[in-house]
């Protein structure tokens, strides 16, 4: 997310100050201003993104290698696609991808639909004490993922969980850390922390819709539900798809929650998701080549996904005629 917001910032904050800071010293103050304002961003982009990525790509091709049994003959050589082949042939990586996809399939529709519904409710004015309820919804997002998972682990663990205690008094036993409940338990944690945040973004987009459009719809006889679905939702479509991209990418990088769950139940192994696989390859298996190859694969998938969704979004927003213009 940081990459997409960062380039925007210098432009908006820098505009008023640009003329007088550079005019005195430069022939082309505009160009220099651009340099000064984009410099820090470019520097950081290279330092914390491009160079590490290139280093990872290099590591994935050049790897510590051995011959035969491997005792005492390690040397670094070009190994071509060997690490990629190993990652893709590793059943634990493939299973991790499958687990993540299943999780994404459950989580993404839930969080998007849930957040949209909440945002529409707020926007419709049906909810009283809107500010307060928004804050309450948003608060879980301020809780770091690790803390959130610890809280939920406490609620999931039989013997210490007050929720499970209550349920057992009603003769209900639910094993939140059982095999079939793992994904629902993970989705629950992610929804808890992500729903309010996403709803706030959608709500902000809804507030930006000109009121006269909504009023016009009401005048034309559309009820609140029809207005929401036919007028409001199409108007915030670009926000919807942007959030969808970020949610998808965050989902592909699922790490913190299952990492902590793996401490609580052996059913979550150390290679439960692709990101955990990378962590395990680098720090348990000491295989940086393998970790790099898996990282690059994940990065490629994330980039491709962002590209596809971004392209799709820009095209669809171009095709849809701006209703404001159409009206006026």
């Amino acid at each position: 997310m940081s990459t997409t917001t960062a380039p925007g910032k210098p432009r908006t904050t820098g505009a008023p100050s640009a003329p007088h800071t550079t005019a005195a010293r430069s022939h082309s103050p505009r160009r220099q201003a651009v340099g000064v304002l984009l410099g820090p961003f470019t520097l950081l982009l290279f330092a914390v993104f491009l160079i590490p990525v290139l280093y990872a790509v290099r590591l994935s091709f050049f790897s510590e290698t051995h011959t035969g049994l491997g005792f005492g003959n390690a040397h670094t050589t070009f190994v071509g696609l060997r690490n990629y082949a190993a990652v893709l042939a590793d059943p634990s990586f493939v299973r991790g991808v499958g687990t993540t996809l299943l999780y994404a399939l459950v989580f993404i529709p839930l969080v998007l639909a849930g957040a949209l519904a909440l945002a529409l409710l707020f926007d419709s004015g049906l909810v009283r004490a809107r500010q307060l309820s928004q804050t309450v919804l948003f608060v879980p997002h301020a809780v770091p993922g690790i803390i959130a998972t610890v809280i939920w682990l406490y609620l999931y663990t039989p013997g210490i969980s007050p929720v499970l205690d209550l349920l057992s008094k009603a003769d209900l036993t639910v094993n939140f850390l059982g095999l079939s409940m793992l994904i629902p338990s993970l989705v629950n944690i992610a929804l808890w922390s992500g729903l309010g945040y996403t709803a706030v973004i959608f709500f902000a987009a809804l507030r930006a819709i000109p009121r006269e459009l909504v009023e016009a719809a009401e005048v034309d006889g559309a009820g609140p539900v029809r207005t929401a679905l036919m007028i409001k939702v199409p108007l915030i479509r670009s926000t919807l798809s942007t959030v969808a991209v970020f949610t998808t990418i965050a989902t592909l990088q699922l790490f913190t929650e299952p990492m902590l769950l793996s401490r609580a139940t052996p059913l979550v192994g150390p290679r439960y998701t692709p990101n955990m696989y990378i962590f395990d390859a680098a720090f348990t298996r000491n295989n940086y080549g393998l970790a790099s190859a898996a990282s690059v694969l994940l990065l490629v998938v994330c980039c491709a996904l962002s590209y596809v969704v971004t392209r799709g979004t820009t095209r669809s927003t171009q095709r849809v005629p701006d209703p404001r213009k159409a009206r006026s």
Binding site: V48, V53, Y55, A56, Q253, N275, A282, Y288, L299, S306
Partner: peptide, 21 residues
């Protein structure tokens, strides 16, 4: 886990290996 990556870090995948180094 020595460091926990930002769940939303778009770039985390690439960074991991840098961290490894």
């Amino acid at each position: 886990p020595g460091r926990s990556p930002s769940r939303r870090g778009v770039l985390a995948a690439g960074l991991w290996t840098a961290l490894a180094g």
